[in-house]
Design a protein around this nucleic acid. Sequence first.
DNA 1: GCCAACGTTGGC
DNA 2: GCCAACGTTGGC
Length: 187
Amino acid sequence: MRHWLMKTEPSVFSLDDLRRKGREGWDGVRNYEARNSMRAMRVGDPVLIYHSNAETIGVAGLAEISREAQPDATAWDPANEHFDPRSTPERPLWDQVEVAFVRAFPRLVTREDLQGIPAFSASLLWKRSRLSVIPLTDAEFAAVLFAAELPAADGDQRARPERAAAVRIRSSGQGSGRGPSPKRASR
DNA sequence: GCCAACGTTGGC
DNA sequence: GCCAACGTTGGC
């Protein structure tokens, strides 16, 4: 199973917006590498939703692919902000996938948290700062899920200790990561 | 195919 | 809102 991270600017389209709508066509992506990643996505693939360009930057929760790649019709709509005249209905250039809400994390896994997760240190999120659709390794994905259940690194140490403990037990021995010691965004 | 100019992304 | 990083475009 593949895992992905998709960026969105929460002022444009947030995880809460996705929760309200249930599903969303992830259109507007105008980068070949991101498009190719979307073409590789399969129904059911988990997707971390990352809030970029925001006051609180980080992974807000989990979604999944609910429909595989299909042509992105906004590309041949002159009125659309992501209009690209090179794309036509006859020869589509850009694709979109549909993403379905799964859950919001108990807390945001902040960018700072991510920077402190050893299993995440080689992520494309750092190496390819402009890429808006990013494939994740199993270890990277697991590390973020794990961190999401831990108390925040600062401040709310008392938050959900029982939950964190439960996760520790369930995750023990797996060697997964440890906790921290673009309408839509322009994706 | 190089690379300077340009436009955009996204952290701060 | 600034601006560095970086992906894309287009002249040569």
